[in-house]
Design a protein around this nucleic acid. Structure first.
Lengths: 203, 203
DNA sequence: ACCTGAACACCGTTCAAGT
DNA sequence: ACCTGAACACCGTTCAAGT
């Protein structure tokens, strides 16, 4: 389960702390209902603070998202490590992929931010995304080693699949997201001995 | 090859026609360089017309995109019908999927519009998207009938895969888009006799 | 140390007034 | 028939001035 609102790193003045938490609460509600691109100005308005106050606490939209999502993402990474103990390497990988997609689905439009953050070191979400990617890498490596996943499947492939499927789901339906994820995962699976379709670009 | 700027449906006054074409040309350039979400106001500015003139010709951004993409999309649909004659049903499907993804990639951010338009009957792109979807349906049906594609793969699955892979490519790299498409297509492939992974939701 | 609110430079869309 | 440009209601971001 979740630990609720994450604590700011350091001691803050009482009024500052109160503003910080109200902003976080309003942002969570607004992002949940209208997506991660919702107006920051309107969030400040709903929290009853001036827009400058929001920027004081969260200099960028990504910083706000990190405050909302950081803990969840670290939990997801931890779940990945636990799934390394799953009896079936591929099923463990698949289960984790579904959990990861559920995280991306938290706020509509989040996938793009998560995709960019993993490559952008200046993003406040970079560290959390890297942890998620590393967890995926562990699971992919294990499935590859067991001969259950293709030898050319990478962690970035898994990361991209999860976010892309979530994106597709936002455009049409949650069912479509699940289907795309399932087909993609099946494409990751090692064939018994048969046809080797070429995946471009090995990395 | 392409027929160049599409003609407006009816006779127009000479100055109107000139504005129409300048708007289209500037939009093509701007969307190509900065994506399909580029400022319409700036496009009007570059075309040397008032913003109201742009809205007069193209009441919505989708109308502008339809004028730019409609012919291309109908060509893509026609290519799909030709590929029904491909010796290998699955290879024909795969070749068409790659061509479709190339279309989505024309303007950054286009995928979302194409995904929505296929379900939104009020979208100016709806008809063109439906034609593309129908072409996909033909190829998928043939590959299913030949036992080369899973029996539960649908045209919307193919459509979603193409756009989702294109989207992922925009967030990271064109190579990632190709890889995701390849893995997804491989997931569409029928297994010889073996493991049946469950794809949710049959449609 | 933190907050306020105005300032700046943008958007998309509509519509009265012109020619 | 078509064009213009202002009007309206929004944005994100910055920063001087306050307490």
């Amino acid at each position: 389960m979740d630990t609720g609102t994450p604590a700011p790193r350091r001691r803050m003045r009482a009024d500052a702390r109160r503003n910080y938490e109200r902003l976080l609460a309003e942002a969570a509600a607004a992002f949940g209902e209208h997506g991660a691109d919702f107006s920051l100005e309107e969030i400040a308005r709903r929290a009853g603070v001036a827009n400058g106050t929001l920027y004081g606490h969260f200099p960028t939209r990504r910083a706000l998202l990190e405050a909302l999502m950081g803990d969840r993402m670290r939990t997801l990474a931890a779940t990945g490590e636990e799934l390394l103990a799953h009896p079936s390497p591929f099923d463990g990988l698949a289960a984790w992929a579904r959990a990861a997609m559920a995280h991306t689905t938290l706020y509509r439009g989040l996938g793009a931010t998560l995709m960019q953050a993993v490559e952008d070191e200046t993003s406040e979400l970079h560290t959390a995304c890297k942890a998620v990617l590393a967890a995926g890498e562990g699971l992919v490596a294990r499935a590859r080693a067991a001969g259950e996943a293709r030898p050319d499947v990478t962690a970035p492939d898994l990361y991209a699949l999860v976010n892309a499927a979530a994106w597709a789901g936002e455009q049409s339906s949650a069912l479509q997201a699940e289907r795309l994820l399932a087909f993609g995962l099946d494409g990751f699976r090692a064939h018994p001995p048969s046809a080797d379709d070429h995946i471009p670009g090995q990395r």
